[in-house]
Design a protein around this nucleic acid. Structure first.
Lengths: 237, 237
DNA sequence: CATTCAAGTGAACGCCGTTTACTATGGCAA
DNA sequence: TTGCCATAGTAAACGGCGTTCACTTGAATG
């Protein structure tokens, strides 16, 4: 690609400035504080000008969410790469990185993993596009679990049971990552939902009724899960 | 208490009508569709009249959320009471009831368990009031796990480890339910976060990238968890 | 140099929460 | 029965919001 024209450069700079403003508002006031008028005010512009760059507020927020998925994914990839070659260590590091980023960025987490606006972008999300930022984020977990399974299979429910219950329902996963052993798919989903549940409850303040310092609980659960992953599968009995 | 005065009866009826309207809007358009003006319009009133009953929109939404916690708790208690005397069966029934209510009421679920408005009611929530609807909801799970532990202890991480990591951080839980064995507290938190994570991901559409029909995954996880609860604790080795 | 087109403005529309001043009415005490 | 007064409701207004539309301006392009 040749050097982008001057117009192009200005345009991408403005897009970035708009997104920066949106994120600043998101961080300080939650998603409901993100408004075109406030962004434009911060930029010394008027609100309708933003429509030259995004077709609606909602589209802007969706683009911001996509960026955040990429940011979080890069963070997890860095943690994985720093964790050595042992898949379990990589998963541990990724789990901790996921929690620490999420706790440090609760507003962003809420936007990415909280409730979706009713039916608006759901059909955009579950679209199987493998290049969708959310899908690319989920994909980060696949490789380590797959490697671990190759190296040292871990115990799971019996493969026949998994096949019967889950077999026909993994098309979306298969569309992004060819054929994955069903045990790997199960471990991926099981582990991801546990990680998500714990972190989401902490970030959303839903654990305060029971426990202070949710990090202790997080480390306990992480230890329990990795112990499960390190265990030998039961001998065929 | 004597029969409430006529005024009182009219007032509670109006409060109920306002809440009904709010819930209708919540269901059809998500939480952001709940507006005082729309509620008042549906009731043939003007918006400022609602201020005679609730000090703000936010307070109305909070009251609605409280009612929803009670509704869900009653549903879970009914499922538990229909499940016989076996604690594991009770927990299974409560887990299924939680999922089915949540899937059937995604907007309500989002309001109750999704992201909180920034710092607004957080300090109201984590207040240790044992009569807070959210706390009373969480409490439903305590008794069956406690009973199960009494009847047939299940495997957990070693008590000394739990005590060291979690011991000092359970004041909120202890304030609502006296002393609870630390293994029970751990199993409660671990199980609740797994249940929440799975259901929240399904309701929020966060599993669509990997799996269709999340119920199959839910049943697998439920089976895995209850198998864990039914297992014998490892003999002291 | 003339033209074209993207970028931005200002005004407007219809929503929204909330406040204020004001009105009517039903219950209660003198 | 009469008079009072708290209660429930209204209308108008303020500021903020997303969005649309008609309009200007200025820079890149032929």
């Amino acid at each position: 690609m040749p050097t982008p024209s001057r117009r192009e450069r200005l345009r991408t700079a403005t897009v970035a400035e708009i997104k920066d403003g949106a994120r600043r508002l998101l961080v300080t006031g939650g998603v409901e504080a993100v408004s075109l008028r406030a962004i434009a005010r911060d930029m010394g512009m008027t609100a309708p000008a933003i429509y030259r760059y995004f077709p609606s507020l909602e589209a802007l927020v969706a683009a911001l969410a996509g960026d955040l998925y990429d940011e979080l994914r890069l963070r997890l990839e860095a943690a994985r790469d720093d964790a050595g070659a042992e898949p379990v260590d990589q998963l541990l590091a990724m789990g901790r990185a996921f929690r620490s980023w999420s706790v440090a960025h609760p507003a962003e987490f809420g936007l990415m993993f909280g409730v979706r606006a009713p039916g608006l972008d759901a059909f955009v999300d579950d679209c199987v596009h493998p290049d969708h930022p959310g899908a690319r984020f989920g994909a980060v977990f696949v490789q380590p679990i797959f490697d671990l399974w190759h190296r040292a299979p871990f115990p799971t429910p019996p493969a026949e049971l998994l096949q019967e219950r889950l077999g026909g329902r993994l098309e979306p996963l298969r569309l992004s990552h060819g054929e994955v052993p069903i045990e790997v798919a199960y471990a991926l989903l099981s582990g991801w939902t546990r990680l998500y549940g714990l972190v989401a409850m902490e970030v959303f303040g839903q654990l305060a009724w029971a426990v202070t310092e949710a990090e202790a609980l997080f480390e306990l659960e992480l230890a329990a899960f990795t112990a499960q992953l390190r265990a030998d599968p039961p001998a065929a009995s």
